[in-house]
């Protein structure tokens, strides 16, 4: 089958679904972060595919900004995880229940 826009969008949707499944299913903060990266990458793939098939380079500029913001987000998030681990000795969401009633 010819690889057109629909095939690229299907891959992007499947990647997004896998990332969402990881965020909901896994209980380790680091793996949850990696699943978030998968979801961002799925959005990037959809943007690049639309940009290629609609002949509009603005989508690729948006992907460039998304990659930059994702790098900043990962650095801040990992610093938060390290600070949390120092205080609680755990990077597992089920151990972080101090805001529970």
């Amino acid at each position: 089958m010819h690889a057109g826009l629909e095939q690229y969008l299907a891959v992007s949707f499947a990647l997004f679904a896998l990332g969402l499944l990881g965020v909901i299913m896994r209980r380790n903060l680091l793996v949850i972060y990696m699943s978030l990266e998968l979801m961002l990458n799925a959005a990037n793939l959809a943007l690049v595919a639309f940009s290629r098939f609609k002949d509009n380079l603005n989508g690729q500029i948006l992907v460039f900004f998304i990659i930059t913001v994702a790098a900043a987000e990962v650095s801040v998030g990992l610093a938060l995880i390290v600070a949390l681990y120092r205080r609680r000795q755990s990077a597992h969401v089920e151990d972080l229940t101090s805001m529970k009633l």
């Binding site: 057109g4 690049v48 290629r52 098939f53 002949d55 509009n56 380079l57 690729q60």
Partner: peptide, 8 residues
């Protein structure tokens, strides 16, 4: 819109 044209 299935004609790939843009060059990045």
């Amino acid at each position: 819109l299935a004609s790939p044209t843009a060059q990045g």
